[in-house]
Design a protein around this nucleic acid. Structure first.
Lengths: 332, 332
DNA sequence: GAAACGCATTGAAGCGCTTCGACGCTGAAT
DNA sequence: ATTCAGCGTCGAAGCGCTTCAATGCGTTTC
């Protein structure tokens, strides 16, 4: 492997000149720069990432912690990851993938200087990672709202507003009794922050509109989802509006309704909270509040990068939810 | 951040002793090791990854290239990634995430010493990454079979055998006319290697059994899948066995069959090629050939790690497909 | 009792890069 | 003509770690 010294020799300049020519951190004459670039091309030179990290105290890597465990909505994650990687590259950064459970990995990445900055998905109310991050000096962005964000930046869809928006929408269509079919029980038990927030917003707005609101966790399995629908329809036969916040259960809920002869939106209005492509991939296109996962990923990178150079203070950003009507809801 | 020198000072030993105590590459007395460990704990010392990479010419990182583009089966990818990350950790390696399209990223990771080894998903017949890999000195494992693997290791499910297995299974149930609903057209056009191979195996075994076999690419959208089903049933009304190799289209195919009043498996037998959880998440549990994505991920890491230490020759491994009967196929 | 050995430990030389201070040169200002 | 900037370039010091050769010391061997 050619080193910077080989390049310097070939270009007949010093190594520092090569470094400056490549980084642009000092003015270099056009002629010299050209010679350097030629030498680089000729040798196929690539800077050694470790050496660079050592000398500059910068790794040009973003650590990204994603939940690879079950029960999470895969397409949300994939889109999010894609957003992070793409935007990371635009900032000249690569992405180191860490798994949610791996606290040791987080410490390794944090203090072990593997990453300059961190983005963490799927934050829980009392997240074990928060203290580690507060202790470290690295910029971090949490996707979600922990109970105690103390100095950490957070970003997320405003799930509480999304819950309200859903209730508003159904109330606007004159529904009187509505239900939220939410995240699977295991996610709720972890108190993943978004699940709690959707519920709160939905309940609140439903109350304000004088709606009767039911809230049920909903397993992602076909059988589990079916059971929840049956249970709901049995215990609350007057429900005419459904708000489904569970990407994987959504198709099964729709299937069950159809099996029971309930037309959507004729008999029951169904509103989803999911990424656009999921809304479009159902048996019937879904009226849905978009979960802009890729956008959130990009924004997370922007936020964390901004904090890497300047030292902006911590900030919490909540994206305003947007509802797109695709015809799966109708007036009662 | 404490350095190895701080640790050495506190433990009253030399830095080299600390290094050896931590790496275990030389015998260190129990007493000394204990002192070192104590100092490490007390200071919260973490080795600087870059410095380590520079000195040892090893980054302890695996580069993983995944297709984050659309049209791919998300849950397959997620499971695969999870397999790679988990097994990578067991080998003491972290994972650097690269996107499929990013050839520059591949070169950066390859020669820029960001990664010790590479795992690439979704390999195409004439993959642009192959020449880059052949040129580099790093061990790599391709998931899929490029036309010219020249010295590179490959790993995959034996999709050709899977195609044959599907045809065998349907033939065994006395079906006479069968169809393969495969990958979306865009995937086929890329000549992603698995798509071609499934087709070949299916055609071959169907021929051997004297079956009439239809092969249709199948879009992953609800409308597209529906159309393909309609088209098939119109042009080949005698088809009684369906082999679906498209995770996302599968639910839509089943929905369409139901809409058309074709019972599964009463009127039509449906066999899938997909991960187990996808097979179980359908309206009806699917008889399916398992796509063991997580296993492939783990194995890929094992292969690449084996090549990192010893220098084993390149090798191609194809996993034997396994069919699990869950009742969605029946005798004609 | 001297020589030889093996074990635990050390010192020092890098690994390949960035960056700081210094230097020489040209051209403008005096 | 002399001074002074400022631009473009260079030299050298380190960043924090690994690793090789060498050292010291207590044991065994003849």
């Amino acid at each position: 492997m050619p080193t910077i010294e080989d390049v310097a020799r070939l270009a007949k300049v010093s190594t520092s000149t090569v470094s400056y020519a490549l980084s642009g951190k000092r003015p270099i004459s056009a002629a010299t720069r050209r010679r350097v670039e030629q030498a680089v091309a000729e040798l196929g030179y690539r800077p050694h990432a470790g050496a660079r990290a050592l000398a500059s105290a910068r790794s040009e890597v973003i650590g990204l912690m994603v939940p690879l465990r079950s029960g999470v909505d895969v397409s949300v994650i994939m889109q999010f990851v894609a957003g992070v990687v793409t935007r990371g590259r635009e900032h000249g950064h690569d992405v180191l993938l860490l798994t949610q459970e791996d606290l040791v990995g987080l410490e390794r990445a944090t203090d072990g200087s593997m990453a300059d900055a961190l983005v963490l998905m799927d934050v829980e109310a009392d997240d074990a990672r928060v203290p580690i991050l507060t202790r470290s000096r690295q910029p971090a962005v949490l996707i979600g709202l922990p109970r105690n964000a103390s100095g950490l930046s957070c970003l997320d869809l405003d799930f509480e507003a999304a819950g309200r928006l859903a209730a508003d929408h159904l109330a606007g269509l004159a529904h009187r009794e509505v239900a939220l079919l939410g995240a699977p029980p295991e996610v709720l038990e972890r108190h993943t922050s978004y699940a709690d927030r959707v519920t709160r917003g939905f309940r609140e707005a439903a109350g304000a509109h004088g709606l009767t609101a039911h809230v049920l966790p909903c397993p992602s399995t076909p059988a589990g989802a079916r059971e929840v629908v049956d249970e709901l329809l049995a215990s609350a036969p007057g429900v005419t509006g459904l708000f489904v916040h569970n990407e994987r259960a959504l198709p099964h809920v729709l299937t069950r309704l159809r099996e029971l002869g309930r037309a959507v939106p004729g008999d029951v209005s169904v509103l989803a909270l999911c990424p656009e492509d999921v809304a479009l991939a159902q048996q019937v296109p879904m009226t849905a509040i978009d979960l802009p996962a890729a956008t959130i990923g990009s924004l997370a990178v922007d936020m964390v990068m901004a904090r890497l150079d300047g030292d902006q203070p911590a900030e919490t950003r909540l994206l305003t939810p947007v509802l797109t009507d695709r015809g799966s809801t109708a007036p009662r």
